[in-house]
Simulated assay, not measured.
Amino acid sequence: MIAASDLKAGMTFEQDGKLIKVLEASHHKPGKGNTVMRMKLRDVRSGSSTETTMRPEEKVKKAHIESKAVQYLYSQDDIANFMDLETYEQYEIPTSIIEEELKYILENMEVKIQFYGSEVIGITLPTTVVLKVVETQPSIKGATVTGSGKPAKMETGLVVNVPDFIEEGESLEINTQEGTYLKRAAK
């Protein structure tokens, strides 16, 4: 068992027969009354999200989640296909479960697949990925890093706000936790 005050973003716990992933967690001290934990949670199996509060001393059962390195192969008919790099065993995951994560991965990219027992519940992305810009407005002459930026569509369909000097065809390093541009990728 784990106290609600110890829950952090990314952790998974069991509650009422459901598998719940913490998306955001923060302490909140209202003007009157006791401290509460404000949390944004997602039901891993159904994909539904909810916001709730818990008392810091409230206990939940931490779920034992295992990870395994896999390679993303392809997506077809609402199914994403992955292959274990050691055993060559293949896993199929409905794209509805990993819809957001698919915006950051290309074919043959390595990710970690998450298991709850023998059930596949999702994937873990690397902290950063390198993606190529396929569509953006032309660069502005004399543009600096401090400009307001412009949207750029990446090769996976992800849209990221980038500095004005970025052009189509450039490879960029993208933060997968926040979905933000970090820098140009080394050539």
Rank of each mutant, 00 (worst) to 15 (best):
P163I: 03
A63L: 10
F165C: 04
E110Q: 14
F82T: 14
A25D: 07
I93E: 01
E173N: 07
H27D: 12
Y88P: 00
Y181E: 02
Q76F: 09
E86N: 12
Q15R: 13
L41S: 04
K112T: 10
T146S: 14
T146I: 13
S139Y: 12
G10K: 01
Y104D: 01
G157T: 09
L85I: 15
I166S: 00
T180A: 03
R55P: 01
L125C: 03
A3D: 06
D164K: 08
G122L: 02
V162Q: 05
D78N: 14
M11L: 12
R184W: 00
T124A: 13
K187V: 10
S46R: 03
E178F: 14
A186K: 15
G117C: 09
N34M: 03
R45M: 15
T52R: 04
E178S: 15
E173S: 05
S139A: 15
K59R: 14
E24G: 01
N34A: 08
Y88D: 10
G169P: 01
S48P: 00
L102I: 05
V129A: 02
S5L: 08
L7F: 12
I166Y: 00
T180D: 04
Y88F: 15
I93F: 05
I113W: 06
I174K: 02
V60F: 14
I65C: 09
E135Y: 06
S118G: 02
L41C: 03
K8D: 05
G31H: 06
L182V: 15
T136H: 04
E86S: 10
E99S: 11
P56R: 00
I79L: 15
P151S: 12
L102P: 04
S46N: 02
S171F: 14
F115E: 08
L172G: 01
G149M: 08
G169A: 02
P94Y: 07
P163V: 04
S75L: 09
E170W: 05
I166D: 00
K68F: 04
E92N: 12
I121T: 04
S139N: 10
I121W: 05
F115V: 10
V160L: 06
R45Q: 12
E119S: 13
G122D: 00
Q71C: 11
K153L: 10
G179A: 04
S75A: 15
L23M: 09
A143C: 08
E110T: 13
I93T: 07
V145Q: 13
E57T: 07
G117R: 08
A69Y: 04
G142L: 08
D164A: 08
K68C: 08
K29T: 11
N108E: 14
V160F: 04
E178R: 14
A143E: 02
E155L: 07
K62V: 10
Y72Q: 11
L131I: 06
E86Y: 06
A9M: 10
E110K: 13
A4T: 07
T156V: 03
D6E: 12
M1L: 13
P126N: 01
S26K: 14
P94M: 03
P138Y: 11
K32R: 13
K18P: 02
S48V: 13
E14V: 12
F165M: 13
K141Q: 10
K187C: 00
S171I: 00
N81Q: 12
L73G: 05
D84P: 04
V129D: 05
R184D: 00
V36F: 09
T87G: 03
